[in-house]
Design a binder for these strands. Structure first.
Lengths: 210, 210
DNA sequence: TAGATTGTTAATCGATTAACAATC
DNA sequence: TAGATTGTTAATCGATTAACAATC
C-alpha cells in the first residue's frame, strides 16, 4: 500500500488529461508543451506541470512532453494497462445499457456476468450473457476472477449485496445506487449518483436566473 | 443573475444533504443537530453549519434544524420546487435507460421527447414516446418549453447538436458524451463522464496495490 | 550558444476546521 | 435560568498560481 499520498483532486483530473492526450495522438501530434495543453484544456500550465510531477518527470526542458509517451504513462497510472473483469448487478435499463457499452473493453474492462434478483428475467440474454440470480454472485466472483462489481440496482437491495461483495473481498465497486456504501477501507468505491448530478444542473440554472 | 458567489464545492454537497434529510424525514425525525448529522454523513459539524449558512440561517440555537423545513429549503435551493422539461438526444441504450427512469419525475424532471439520427429507429416507441429525428429538435424545444437537453450520443455527433441547442438558447445540458462542450456562459453544462469515473476507480485499486 | 520549457520552490488564494460568543 | 447548539469569526490546512533557476 503506497496509496493515499496523491490528493483526490489530482486523481480526478487524470482521466481528462488522458482523454485530451488521446485526441492529440489521433491528430498525429508528437509533442506538446504545458502552455499549449493549458490553452486547449482551459487550465493553467502551472497546474498541468504540478499534476504530472506528482508521478515523476514526464517532460523535457526546452522540448515539452512527448504525446505518445505521456499518454502511455498516464494510462499506466490509471491502471489501464491491466485487464479488469466486471460483473453487473441489477439487469434493469441502466445495467443493460452498461453491459452493452462496448467502449469499456477498449480500456481493458470486460463484463463477465450480469445478475438480478427478479426471477422472471433470470435466463434472459444480454449481450450474449444469461442473466443469473444474485444468489450466484459469490461463487461467480471466485471462479471468474472478478475485480469490480457494478451496482445498478435500487438502493433497497444494495446493502445486502454489498455484504456479499465485502465477504468476497472484491477490489472495487462502481456504485450507481443512490446510497453511500459502508465498506472497509480495502474496498474502493466510486459513486455515480445520477440524480445528484441532475440536481446540480438544476441548481446552476436557477441560481443564475435570480 | 446573482449566481457564481457560492463555490462549486458547496453546491456539489447539497444533493447529498438533500438525500440524507429525505431519509431522516422518512424515519420520522423532526429535528437534528449539526453534530448528529455530521456523525451520519461523516463530515464535520462545522462544515455542515458553514454550508447551510451560505443560504441563510435555517437553524435555531439550542435546538438544531427542523428536518422538514431544512429538506424543503434545500430542495428550493436546488430548484426542485420547479418543473423541468427534458429531451433526450441519442436513443441508444443509455438514452432509453434514462427515458425509462421514473424517479426523475418525482423531482419534477419530465422527459418530453427523445431523438436520434438513425433513420431505422425513428418512430420506435420508448416509454410511450415515438423516437423523432434530430432535425426536429429546434422546433420541438420551442413548442414544448424544453429547459434541459440530455446528451446520450457518441461524441462525434455532439458538436453539431450542441450548436442547435445553443441557437435555441436551452437552459441546461446534461452531458453524457465524452467531450467537453464549448458553449456560452448562459448555458449550463453538467458532465457525466462515465469512463472517467471508471478510470478513477481503476486508479484507486492499483494505487493501493503497490 | 540562445531559446524554450520543464521541474520546483515560494506566494497566494480558497476551503476546512476550530473556537466561541450569541441566543434559543 | 442553565444547557444546548447555532451562526460566525479566526486559525489552519491544502490546493492553485506565479516565478524562476535548472537544463535540454
Amino acid at each position: 500500500m503506497q496509496g493515499k499520498n496523491i490528493s483526490q483532486v489530482v486523481i480526478s483530473r487524470l482521466p481528462r488529461y488522458f482523454r485530451y492526450l488521446g485526441d492529440l495522438k489521433d491528430e498525429g501530434m508528437e509533442r506538446i508543451s504545458s502552455g499549449e495543453l493549458s490553452k486547449r484544456m482551459n487550465v493553467t500550465a502551472s497546474q498541468i506541470r504540478q499534476d504530472f510531477n506528482h508521478f515523476g518527470g514526464f517532460g523535457q526542458q526546452g522540448y515539452g512532453y512527448n504525446v505518445n509517451y505521456l499518454y502511455e504513462e498516464i494510462g499506466k497510472i490509471l491502471g489501464l494497462d491491466k485487464k479488469h473483469n466486471l460483473i453487473i448487478i441489477g439487469a434493469g435499463n441502466l445495467g443493460q445499457a452498461l453491459a452493452n457499452y462496448m467502449n469499456f473493453e477498449k480500456r481493458g474492462f470486460f463484463v463477465k456476468g450480469i445478475f438480478d434478483c427478479k426471477e422472471e428475467i433470470i435466463g434472459q440474454t444480454v449481450r450474449g450473457m444469461k442473466i443469473m440470480h444474485t444468489s450466484k454472485i459469490a461463487d461467480f466472483i471466485k471462479e471468474n476472477n472478478i475485480d469490480i462489481a457494478v451496482l445498478t440496482l435500487p438502493k433497497q437491495g444494495a446493502t445486502e449485496i454489498v455484504k456479499t461483495l465485502v465477504e468476497c473481498n472484491i477490489c472495487g465497486i462502481w456504485n450507481f445506487a443512490h446510497v453511500d456504501l459502508d465498506v472497509p477501507d480495502s474496498i474502493h468505491v466510486e459513486n455515480v449518483h445520477l440524480s445528484d448530478s441532475l440536481m446540480k444542473l438544476s441548481f446552476k440554472i436557477h441560481d443564475d436566473e435570480e
